[in-house]
Nucleic acid binder design. Sequence first.
DNA 1: TACAATTGATTTGCATACAAACTATATTAG
DNA 2: CTAATATAGTTTGTATGCAAATCAATTGTA
Lengths: 170, 170
Amino acid sequence: MSDKKPIISNIIDNLRRVFQILNEQSKKVERETGITGPQLWAIKTIHENSPVKVSDLANKLYLHPTTVVGIIDRLEKQNLVERRRSKDDRRVVWIDLTDKGNDLVKSAPEVVQGLLVSGLEEISANNLTEIDRSMKHLVKIFGAQKIAPKLILSTEFNIRQDANIEELDK
Amino acid sequence: MSDKKPIISNIIDNLRRVFQILNEQSKKVERETGITGPQLWAIKTIHENSPVKVSDLANKLYLHPTTVVGIIDRLEKQNLVERRRSKDDRRVVWIDLTDKGNDLVKSAPEVVQGLLVSGLEEISANNLTEIDRSMKHLVKIFGAQKIAPKLILSTEFNIRQDANIEELDK
DNA sequence: TACAATTGATTTGCATACAAACTATATTAG
DNA sequence: CTAATATAGTTTGTATGCAAATCAATTGTA
């Protein structure tokens, strides 16, 4: 019972380290491209799902709609995306990449697809697979009690690209 | 080469999920105790190292000094910690828990040690050990290129409580 | 049909998180 | 001993990130 605590402490500590490392990657991308990690992530996701609703984008990014609104605001200010009010359902806002946004995705695909995680690309495929398995395990165990309840409320809450985590989906 | 990318994508996605889950835990603690996850983390770390310099606290929390100043500001406003200008070196500020801060740590140890990760406590010791091993693996691989260089610049950058990650320390 | 409940996006307020610039103090070099 | 440099902490400005409240539009229900 009580001897779990140091283990939990270590897990959290190590997660914080990983956060830090990924954060540094993100800052590096920001220095090199002028846009932040989350913004890049959003642009990539918009590109893959264009046009996309704010709420769907939030689901795909695992972020709160509020947070996404802020990111979209800043991308719109840089003229990389644009908002379009839906005519079918006037509550809905469709988000699209502008020409400039598309240029960003196309002219530097490695920025969007790879540079974000450039630090990871040097890792061997075998080790990547192992890490992948570890992360699935983490998500499965951590997320079982936490994500599943959400699905009851919002069937759209995704877990999508990598759905073979033992059907948390349905 | 190129087939690494979907794996990397999945890893990042899963990490984001874990972030979200831990974030929810943190919010839950905030609702229950009135102080946030990072604040709780800081209080616990101050308790274990009291009195501690701002810069050392930043190192122990893996955070930027600026960020720590903000957290300390808010803790001071709640009368949980206090600042004391060093007489030896008047640039240094020592941070201590107030009586109220000590009460918080002592009267509710499970809040500090366990509630932060209450969701994890229900997990079996075996599974925890497995997760722990996974995280060490992640940190070892992710961090090898990233943390090591820092040690050259700052010997204090820690990796402390759990130093048996193959001596990244020294 | 009218009214309640729900949904989609936004606004507001706050807490992280960091970089860059700044202040004060201490150390080092010439 | 003085000027340059380095260090410790803070201030300022910006970008996430979320909760709660709000507004508009749609859906469900009586």
